[in-house]
Nucleic acid binder design. Sequence first.
DNA 1: TTCTGACATTGGAGCGTTCCAAGACATTAA
DNA 2: TTAATGTCTTGGAACGCTCCAATGTCAGAA
Lengths: 344, 344
Amino acid sequence: MHAHSSPRPRAGSAVTLEMVAARAGVGRQTVSNAINSPELLRPQTLERVRRAIDELGYRPHRAAQALKTRASRLIGYGIRSSSTGVPTPVLDQFLHSLSEAADRAGYRVVLFAVAPGDDELTRYQQLLDEHGADGFVLSGTDRGDRRQGWLHERGVPFVAFGRTWSGKDVGDWVDVDGAAGTSAAVRHLAGLGHRRIGFLGWPKGSGVGDDRARGWQSAMRELGLSTRGRRVESPDDPERATEAAGKLLAAGVSAVVAASDTLATGWYQALRREGRSPGPEAAVIGFDDSPLAPLLFPSLTSLAQPLDAVGRECMRLLLERLGDRTRPTEHVLLEPELVLRESM
Amino acid sequence: MHAHSSPRPRAGSAVTLEMVAARAGVGRQTVSNAINSPELLRPQTLERVRRAIDELGYRPHRAAQALKTRASRLIGYGIRSSSTGVPTPVLDQFLHSLSEAADRAGYRVVLFAVAPGDDELTRYQQLLDEHGADGFVLSGTDRGDRRQGWLHERGVPFVAFGRTWSGKDVGDWVDVDGAAGTSAAVRHLAGLGHRRIGFLGWPKGSGVGDDRARGWQSAMRELGLSTRGRRVESPDDPERATEAAGKLLAAGVSAVVAASDTLATGWYQALRREGRSPGPEAAVIGFDDSPLAPLLFPSLTSLAQPLDAVGRECMRLLLERLGDRTRPTEHVLLEPELVLRESM
DNA sequence: TTCTGACATTGGAGCGTTCCAAGACATTAA
DNA sequence: TTAATGTCTTGGAACGCTCCAATGTCAGAA
């Protein structure tokens, strides 16, 4: 009844260690060792066991492993309702890179929904109690976020995409250096000859937004340029952004660094009202390099977050932490990349 | 040592059935029954057990359950490399709705990366062999997709977001009725007085794209309008789209239905070249209602996919299938919604 | 009183794995 | 030849749960 020389072992397997052991003519534990500590086996035995594993298409039953080792090899990612005020960085790419990195290490990402109503922390509690995850990846952290502190107190491994913006800095994180990004944008614009460079940002109080504003501010200072009256604020919606951009225009600004691509479109509209259009005389640089950027006319120069790297680094930090819970915390700050297009 | 009247049970639990049983003064199995078949218990016993569960903050160990019941209560979602040609429908919302629906039923979504290189099906095989998922949700299905057939042959429960576009129709699916969407768009434009309505689509051969073209075609026919020379094709990038849109303009078209928002921007550019702009005289309707739509100037009317409903329905179908693998296949076709904006 | 049967509750067994302590075997030293 | 050492291999036990068959309990019928 055994597949003799079929190219692929049959599916829907219920192959167990014991079966592989029988086939290889060894004990059960030997097969387990062949997988987890191959150095313990005589090369000859190892070879024999490996062949049996291949022939039967054996794969360890994750639940059985989890039960015995007390580790699910699952990483929790709480997916918040998309209607959260802070714009979710495009998850696609981040989740993909996260999953890929996890997979390479034998881990997997498990999603759990966090409805706006219920207490967010209870959902984390639940997953922990069920032993449904060994650690967590957080994203969209902002001021007053209780998750880091809560997880830290309980000694739960986690890594955040986003700094700890308030309270004491706790836990590992990976973040994109928004300030470095906007600084680079300012220097780029200054290199093109601009002196009156404005900042179109979100209302003060958000960690991410303030960081991006800081970069503009410091680069301006370094270049000896005045920031007075050149910073305006708007929530992330087109109408309000247009209004805010109008003020910059009125202030005689010749170039703008925006905290988001959406805000940047405000500059487009404000110019259009005057029959003008972004370009050498009225440059603008956005942030996030969203799919929208290349589609605008003229196309929008923007700062791209290295989401692939962020995902990879998050997983690296988390895995290290899972391996050694007492190691000192580590932070990774990645630079966004200026993607040049027509808006200068 | 037991928490006497602490508001919340302590975290990092290692509470087992046995402990709850001891506390409630009942047998182990009785606690299990209290959770899985409460109708078996005497109300009085049930109450006592429930209190013990609450007091200790007990939650069943998922791995132990999985091992015994041979069901992981995990749903696999293969996340493809984002660089796949077919435009990934914005995953955020879909994944959120999927997770939420799963959670409500005691399931969870587990991601696994599918790198472009390796054989996609092996990744599904792997998850199955490991008993790492009870079923799958597919998305981005298109012509020549082998996944449905493969899973069906093996009797693996799955549901696809997207029809089976080729071969025999196999398995449950949920999809958005692209044809109905473009038909509605045509009727809307006709209602505004347009007669020469063009279609700006993707190259023939993609299931989704052809479906959207079909809706335009049939609505035109029903209204007695000619489609001759009014259909052009372009891949999903702005330059080529502009070029294609130019042909429609040359053909004297007064309104356009586009297969995507990106393509729709081609119409914007083509008009701009002639110093014109979308509006009553040169309308355009996009597809997907991407974040870009409200940011364009003038803002873009577009067909929104009901992603929340899609996620919910996918999970409903999958759960039903998990409950009864022999039930007849079911298909759900949801209508996109026309989101009116300035481009008419 | 004893029996019957419905109802409520229980402990043993086992899911597939890994830990552990012990066994088998070969090699070298005494 | 025996003992000691090291290398390789092994089966029992346990992880926490649910299935199952069996036991205990009690009301009503004989």
